[in-house]
Simulated assay, not measured.
Amino acid sequence: MPAGVPVGVPRQASAPGRVRDWAPKGPLDLGLVLGPLRRGPGDPTFRAMPDGSVWRASRTPAGPGTLRVAARDGTVRGEAWGPGAEWLLEQLPEMLGAADSPEAFEPRHRVVALARHRRPGLRLTRTGLVLESLIPSVLEQKVTTDEAYRAWRLLVRKFGEPAPGPAAGGRLWVMPAPRTWALIPSWEWHRAGVDDKRASTILRAVRVAGRLEEAMRMAPAEAQARLEVLPGIGPWTSAETVQRSHGAADAVSVGDLHLPGIVGWALAGDRTADDAVMLELLEPYAGQGSGQAPGQEGQRHRAARLILLSGRVPPRRAPRMTRGDIGRL
Rank of each mutant, 00 (worst) to 15 (best):
L96E: 03
G65P: 15
L154A: 13
R207K: 15
I202C: 06
I233P: 13
A98S: 14
S310H: 07
G264L: 04
D195I: 10
Y285P: 15
G42D: 13
H190E: 14
L155E: 10
M216G: 05
V9H: 10
E222R: 14
R207G: 12
T322C: 12
S290V: 10
I326S: 01
K197R: 12
D195H: 06
M49R: 08
A293N: 09
L155M: 04
A13Y: 04
P102Q: 07
L212R: 04
P44Q: 01
R110T: 12
G4V: 12
G26F: 03
A223S: 09
R38V: 12
V130S: 04
A104G: 14
A199P: 06
P93K: 01
A248H: 06
R312I: 10
W236M: 07
P315E: 04
L203C: 10
H117I: 09
T45D: 00
P83D: 06
R179G: 11
V138R: 06
A13M: 10
D196S: 14
P61N: 02
K158S: 14
T60Y: 05
A98Q: 10
R123K: 11
A115E: 02
S58R: 10
R323D: 03
A266Q: 08
G264Y: 09
S58H: 11
T127F: 00
V138T: 08
G170R: 04
W265V: 09
G232T: 10
P136H: 03
G82D: 05
W22K: 03
H190F: 07
A104M: 09
V194C: 12
R204I: 15
G291Q: 08
L124M: 12
D51C: 09
L67M: 06
P10V: 03
W81I: 02
S53K: 01
L89Y: 01
H258L: 13
A225P: 06
P178S: 02
A286V: 08
D256G: 05
R191D: 14
A225Y: 00
L122P: 02
R323K: 14
A62W: 01
P27E: 15
D250T: 09
Q91D: 00
I135K: 00
S133A: 15
A248I: 02
F46P: 01
R244P: 14
A23H: 07
V229A: 09
L281M: 11
P41W: 02
L227W: 00
H109D: 14
V54D: 04
W152T: 11
R77G: 07
D29H: 11
M216A: 03
H301R: 13
G291L: 06
R38K: 14
P102R: 06
S14R: 00
P166Y: 09
A85M: 08
A99V: 02
R204S: 13
Q12N: 07
L37C: 02
A3T: 11
S186V: 15
A62R: 13
G97A: 10
Y149C: 06
A205F: 02
L96F: 03
G97K: 06
R207H: 07
P162Y: 05
R150E: 08
P120D: 12
G269A: 04
P314M: 05
R244S: 05
